[in-house]
Design a protein around this nucleic acid. Structure first.
Lengths: 339, 339
DNA sequence: TTGTAGGCGTTATCAT
DNA sequence: ATGATAACGCCTACAA
């Protein structure tokens, strides 16, 4: 079964009675080589199951046609879609992708990047990095283009693709205001994260624009359990909100559960809005109004930027991707008596 | 920013006034080299930001310490977890992973494997391949170990990790029978898929063991939309089922929606069981009784098997992973009048 | 303990 | 149109 050694260009040269350089040229359809010779060599290569070694080629060309991708964890459906977009664009352009998980541990993120450096990837994309300024010098030192997706630390040294958090959450909150809500809560992520800060900002801007001074902000962690507790606490207030805007869809899922557990109805008693538009959101009860992030597209954009940079061209430093409000059935006007 | 050429072993040799072989040895802590020389060299390497080229090393050692992973699509949360397990075990053992999506297209799957072959990966894992016997010769020809996860075509030539589909679905169905259900439906996947056939088999075995002759089998496609239609049709029968066992959790999500849409209650009117135990299942209304697949573990097992094979050792040909019934709130005894 | 020389499988530069 | 030769960055006999 296992062949000891793959056939090389030299093996084929021997079989074809030519030099290995002729084989090299023929296999890449060099116009220098005689038509017939080329065909003969390619036939022999095919028959002998020849497969060019990307590693040998990489050594001489100094290009691996590989892109390193660092993610937090593949278990996150958000990440899965982004990677899918990355993979698709990479594949289309003849690049392979190397994958590493950081689990939001800065050390692991750094070691992943180190490993990519040793493998001489042509470019790197990092999603949702929590790593700070400390880390940028390392990236710079590598001398390969880097694209960050939804990174926590927009900085001058790297390129990035970011969702329009502020605009998206402003639209979501404005939607609730237009429906007539005045007591609108925001269940956020853990304190200090960039995307949370931006979504909070959008929420505030919308309230302010409508002349609503009452803010109702509580912390979550982006997952249902904690959000459920947060929502429960919100409902126990003397004046509970009539609507909640959530940091993300998983947070909204937890909120939905808490509302149902309190014997209330969505959207009759409380309206709920999420963020991300992950698959599950379309199948909650009721289907969730949310803000869509074009995740695959964001992955593709990152690769396209990388390709440009790898070719030595300029690329937009910070690509902002518009977020789209998706109105489903979890939002409605507030009940008369609770206005 | 971008350094033209990374520092090489020779650059360091020059700086340290030794030969490049001494540097090579020192960097890998060879006991041959003088303690002080080693330290001096390592210091210089560190200062000059040296990073060994995995591609050059791979060329001579004929080992890349890379594992190729072929998946259907990263957008599938099931796949994400498996890849996460793969990644973790690979990382623990100093291997990197190369990722490729097939989108269940046999041609793309083949070209992914070809690409891996050119990159000289040390091993390959393929999840949920639909590719048939036709494809095995290619894998064999590569001469690298291959592990299949939940593959459609268990064959003698490759190694695999598989969930115990039959046992799992038998347990799920038996659970419904124990609750008192007699009219139990199965909403499957598209016809002909291995895992669907096995889950159907488990369903049948459980019915048979309980002396129930009435089977109620309809096709789905593993996603909510189609399952919703299938469930709706089921409910329109003169004698609708009092319980449904679904091919997977997403199918169950669709079934839940159809049942609610018909004005019925889960589990009072109809009990529902899923398969997979994806995150969403714990947050449906009500939380879903399901059969758990230890996805991360399955990924790890695949890598562990690969490591054994790559070391030239034997590995179990077909690892069967037990499926675990998780009873939540979507199952209950049938209503008296509908028995 | 260290150095010299050769080779891994390609591509690239000269010749011819 | 083809061949000889060198080089990429590393590892590894073999020598010293």
């Amino acid at each position: 079964l296992a062949r000891a050694t793959p056939t090389s260009i030299k093996d084929i040269a021997r079989l074809a009675n030519v030099s290995h350089s002729t084989v090299s040229r023929a296999l890449r359809n060099s116009p220098l080589i005689n038509r017939e010779t080329t065909e003969r060599i390619q036939r022999i290569a095919l028959e002998s199951g020849y497969r060019a070694s990307a590693v040998a080629r990489g050594l001489v060309t100094k290009k691996t046609r590989a892109i390193g991708v660092v993610v937090t964890t593949m278990s996150d459906p958000f990440v899965g879609d982004v990677v899918s977009g990355i993979q698709e664009s990479a594949d289309l352009n003849g690049y392979s992708i190397l994958l590493a998980e950081s689990n939001t541990d800065p050390d692991r993120e750094r070691s992943a990047v180190q490993s990519f450096a040793e493998r001489r990837v042509d470019g790197i994309v990092v999603t949702s990095s929590r790593v700070g300024a400390l880390y940028l010098p390392l990236l710079a030192e590598l001398g390969v283009p880097v694209m960050l997706i939804n990174n926590q630390h927009p900085g001058p040294f790297v390129h990035s693709v970011m969702i329009e958090n502020v605009e998206g959450s402003r639209a979501a909150t404005a939607h609730l205001i237009e429906l007539g809500h005045r007591r609108i809560a925001y269940i956020g992520d853990e304190f200090g994260r960039q995307s949370d800060a931006e979504r909070l900002e959008g929420y505030r801007q919308a309230l302010k624009a409508a002349g609503i001074r009452r803010e109702l902000v509580v912390a979550g962690d982006g997952r249902p359990e904690r959000a459920m507790r947060a929502m429960t606490a919100l409902l126990e207030r003397s004046q509970p909100p009539t609507a909640v805007f959530c940091y993300n869809d998983l947070t909204a899922v937890g909120a939905l559960r808490a509302i149902h557990a309190a014997g209330l109805h969505v959207p009759r008693d409380v309206s709920v809005v999420g963020f991300d538009d992950v698959l599950i959101g379309a199948w909650t009860e009721p289907p969730l109004t949310t803000v869509r992030q074009p995740r695959r597209r964001m992955g593709s954009l990152a690769v396209e930027g990388l390709l440009r940079l790898m070719d030595g061209n300029a690329a937009e430093q910070n690509v902002k991707v518009p977020a789209e409000l998706i109105v489903r059935e979890s939002t409605a006007p507030p009940r008369k008596e609770s206005r």
